[in-house]
Simulated assay, not measured.
Amino acid sequence: MTTTALRTPGATAAPAPARPRRRRGRRQRPNWLAGILATIWLVLVAVPLYYLVTGSLRTRQDYLSTNPLVPPSDPTLENYRTVFEGGFLTYLLNTVVVTAATVAIVVALSVPAAYAVARNTGRLVQRGFSLMLVGLAIPAQAAIIPVYLMITQLRLYDTLLAIILPTAAFAMPVALLVMVSSLRDIPGELYEAQTLDGASPLRVLRHLVLPLARPAITTVAVLTSLTAWNGFLFPLVLTQSEETRVLTLGLWDFQGQFGTNVPGLLAAVTLSVIPIFVLYLIGRRYLLSGLTAGFGK
């Protein structure tokens, strides 16, 4: 049995609710200015790389007689063979050792230090952190004489440790800043849950901090690698022999050795760029999240 609503005499029917108007999807306008600027930036980056690679594949006669932006008519690897015969592998190995050791020292010290700063609000710890950040304003050139005196007193002159220790020391402020910003993003409830479960500070560091701080650790590793790989001042002042020479000084030596052989110098530069470029490609997905950690608060 169906029932119908009875209308009382003189009553007016309630107006039907108005249907919400559908908003027409606005078509986003293309940002032509951003596209033009991005294209210009791409050209500015790609052209030097193209010139670097194609120039290293030319002969000296081809380089001097043709347009450097035109692809080489007869590519050759002779320049790379000349570079390897000039001691490039020794310079590369020394640079890898310096970079790996510097990254290991910086990561091993910055992670527990940042954990202490992020979890301890004591005045002494926070003042120590502020004092550490003063190192951001001190350039290596201003401290090179005291560093040289300390290295000579420690009898580390003309060794790879003479490059590793100062490089790690000057990379620590940036690494500590990135790590502290990242660890402060971890919710306090997670720390409290670990503490209620009876976890020690070392266990919290291993099972909570290290997994969640992986982007920041990768960022610190990449930034420190770039600093150590491209370092020139400390190797120049604190080393002397060819056995301890790194790539930056090796390229300086190639510049004198290949004074008129520009393709040979370009081949040496190309080989020195490849390893650090590969490292950047591996860690670039973590760079943005690591550098912007803490800015949302």
Score class of each variant (00 low, 15 high):
157 Y>W: 09
149 L>N: 05
126 Q>D: 09
71 P>W: 04
113 A>P: 11
71 P>D: 02
134 V>R: 00
64 L>K: 00
84 F>E: 10
126 Q>E: 13
138 I>Q: 00
64 L>F: 06
148 Y>P: 03
134 V>W: 06
68 P>L: 07
128 G>Q: 04
122 G>Y: 06
59 T>R: 00
163 I>L: 08
145 I>Q: 01
130 S>T: 10
135 G>H: 05
73 S>L: 13
135 G>Q: 05
123 R>H: 08
67 N>T: 10
148 Y>H: 07
119 R>V: 15
124 L>H: 07
166 P>Y: 00
154 L>T: 12
95 T>C: 06
69 L>C: 09
129 F>H: 06
116 A>L: 14
61 Q>V: 15
158 D>I: 09
142 A>T: 11
148 Y>N: 07
142 A>W: 02
48 P>S: 09
96 V>L: 13
106 V>Q: 03
87 G>F: 11
47 V>I: 13
140 A>M: 10
121 T>N: 13
131 L>E: 06
138 I>C: 07
132 M>G: 14
160 L>W: 12
159 T>H: 03
162 A>Y: 07
136 L>S: 07
84 F>T: 14
154 L>P: 03
88 F>V: 05
78 E>C: 07
76 T>P: 05
53 V>M: 07
62 D>L: 02
133 L>M: 10
64 L>D: 04
101 A>K: 00
136 L>V: 12
116 A>S: 12
96 V>K: 00
62 D>C: 02
166 P>L: 01
162 A>V: 12
